[in-house]
Amino acid sequence: MAARRPDDEGGDGALSSPRLRYGTPERAGLDAGQIARLVEDVRLLTDGPRPWCAGAVVLAGRGPVIAAQDACGWAVRYAAYDETAGRGLGLPFAARVPMAADTPFDLASLTKLFTTIAAVQQIERGTLGIDARVGAYLPEFTAAAEYGVTVRGLLTHTSGLRPELPLYAAPDAASRLALLRAEAPSSKPGEYVYSDLNMLLLQHLLERLTGRPLDVLVRDGITRPLGMTATSYGPRAGAAATEDQRRPWAKADRGMLRGEVHDENAWALGGIAGHAGLFATAYDLAVLCRTLLNGGSYGTARILGPDFVDLMLTAPGLGFRIDQPWFMGELAGAGAAGHTGFTGTSLVLDPATDTFLVLLANTVHPRRRRADNVPRAAAATRLARAVTGPPGS
Rank of each mutant, 00 (worst) to 15 (best):
A377S: 08
D70K: 14
A252H: 03
Y168R: 10
K251V: 11
R5G: 05
D8H: 08
Q245I: 06
A85T: 03
E124L: 08
G389E: 07
T281S: 11
A169F: 06
F279A: 14
G296N: 04
W267T: 03
G148M: 10
P185M: 09
W249C: 10
L44T: 15
P163F: 13
L30W: 04
E264L: 09
Y81E: 06
R382K: 03
L347D: 03
M312N: 03
D82V: 04
R125V: 03
A67P: 03
D31W: 07
A336G: 06
G335E: 03
H275D: 07
E330V: 06
L205T: 03
L360T: 02
H204F: 13
D263M: 14
G63H: 00
I222K: 02
T363R: 12
S195M: 02
L288A: 00
G274M: 10
R224G: 08
T340R: 00
P6G: 12
R62P: 01
A95S: 15
V151I: 11
A118Y: 05
G296E: 01
R50P: 01
A101P: 05
G13I: 00
T103P: 03
A119W: 00
L165R: 09
T231M: 15
G341K: 04
T103A: 05
A94K: 10
P166H: 10
T381W: 02
D215E: 12
F93Q: 15
Y233P: 00
L293Y: 04
G10T: 02
D31A: 11
D323S: 15
P163M: 08
A332C: 12
G299V: 04
P163A: 15
R87A: 07
S393D: 15
F105K: 04
R254F: 05
K251G: 04
T363M: 07
Y22M: 13
L89Q: 14
N265V: 01
A377C: 14
G259S: 11
V39R: 05
A377Q: 02
R236F: 05
V261M: 10
T150G: 08
L89G: 08
G135L: 13
L202S: 13
R181H: 12
A241S: 11
W52F: 07
P139T: 14
